[in-house]
């Protein structure tokens, strides 16, 4: 708006000239980028994303069924944090996100260092570690459910060869969530590796050459060059995997449905269960809790990452 006023004040005569005439005035240059280009995307965003998000703040404070909506204040949130099953889903969400993110950062970085070094079969290795990223999550979940079968699954079959009695990976309440987390890492490791490879490849070769001239050991090169200079990649991996981990639903639903009992429930699966049961208000409260968790985790993480990358 200010732009328009300034231009008009500066060149009042252009106000009436027709638009498409070629002219180098400031106003003409601006008008070739029309603001209405925002409108189609903004319409979708507002109607299908912003409105539901703001509405969720209200509906989370209601008892909402198929038939009516009653305002009940913070009862849904009180229930969320006093019901042991719901509280467990909250803890599980955090555990799942932390475990998968840490594993993806560590393994992804190690794999990327390996796959950027001189190695036979490098192209094959890059392709095979990345492919699970593209496969349907439901397909992966169902496949690993069969592989992790406590009696006939090949994982426990392989352990039995070494004389180890494998546990019920998905049937033991203490293990189910972690087993799903391992499969999530298996599926998502490819992205982390890829981001790290891009980060490592972008490090200027001069550093490595200078280190070689100075006779640095490969550990020193790793410690003082590769590791600190891939910090931006670490930031991207952390952000991607934390967001993905906190919102994770498909894999957990395909493998355990939150079971056995409620031992591997996360907020996203509670949202679905409450929705199915017809407790729309409680389900929406779950959404709001998830929203708050994601935001509360993301703000300090992105601050930290931006600060560190400025320092480097």
């Amino acid at each position: 708006m200010t732009d328009l006023r300034q231009t008009n004040a500066a060149r009042p005569s252009t106000k009436t000239t027709s638009r498409p005439r070629p002219s180098r005035t400031r106003r003409q240059r601006r008008s070739i980028y029309p603001s209405w280009f925002y409108i189609p995307a903004a319409a979708l965003y507002i109607v299908l994303f912003a409105v539901p998000t703001f509405a969720s703040l209200y509906f989370s404070l209601t008892r909402w069924t198929l038939f009516d909506v009653t305002f009940i204040g913070f009862d849904n949130f009180v229930q969320f944090f006093s019901d042991p099953q719901l509280l467990r889903s909250f803890m599980n969400t955090v555990v799942f996100a932390v475990v998968t993110s840490v594993a993806k950062v560590v393994l992804g970085f190690a794999l990327a260092v390996l796959l950027t070094s001189e190695l036979i079969g490098r192209g094959y290795l890059r392709a095979v570690t990345f492919f699970p990223v593209l496969v349907s999550t439901i397909g992966v979940g169902l496949t690993f459910k069969a592989l992790l079968d406590p009696f006939d699954g090949i994982v426990n079959g392989a352990l039995a060869v070494f004389g180890i009695q494998g546990p019920g990976w998905l049937t033991d309440p203490n293990l189910a969530l972690l087993s799903v987390a391992v499969v999530d890492v298996w599926k998502g490791l490819g992205i982390a590796t890829l981001v790290y490879i891009a980060g490592i490849v972008a490090i200027p070769q001069d550093y490595f050459e200078a280190a070689r001239v100075d006779g640095a050991s490969s550990w020193n090169v790793f410690r003082n060059i590769t590791f600190p200079l891939s910090w931006p990649a670490t930031g991207t991996v952390i952000i991607l995997s934390v967001i993905g981990g906190l919102r994770s639903f498909d894999l957990i639903w395909a493998m355990t449905k939150g079971g056995p009992g409620f031992s591997s429930d996360v907020i996203a699966s509670v949202i679905y269960k409450q929705y199915q049961a017809g407790f729309y208000g409680l389900s929406t409260a779950g959404n709001v809790v998830l929203f708050i968790v994601v935001t509360a985790v993301m703000i300090p993480i992105s601050r930290l990452i931006n600060k560190r990358s400025l320092d480097v």
Partner: peptide, 23 residues
């Protein structure tokens, strides 16, 4: 402001039942 909303769209999990309500 537009950049903020773009990033928000990337991070904020969509609210399920209210979206159904809008649809």
């Amino acid at each position: 402001i537009i950049n903020f909303f773009v990033l928000a769209g990337l991070i904020v999990p969509p609210a399920v039942v209210p979206t159904i309500w809008v649809l």
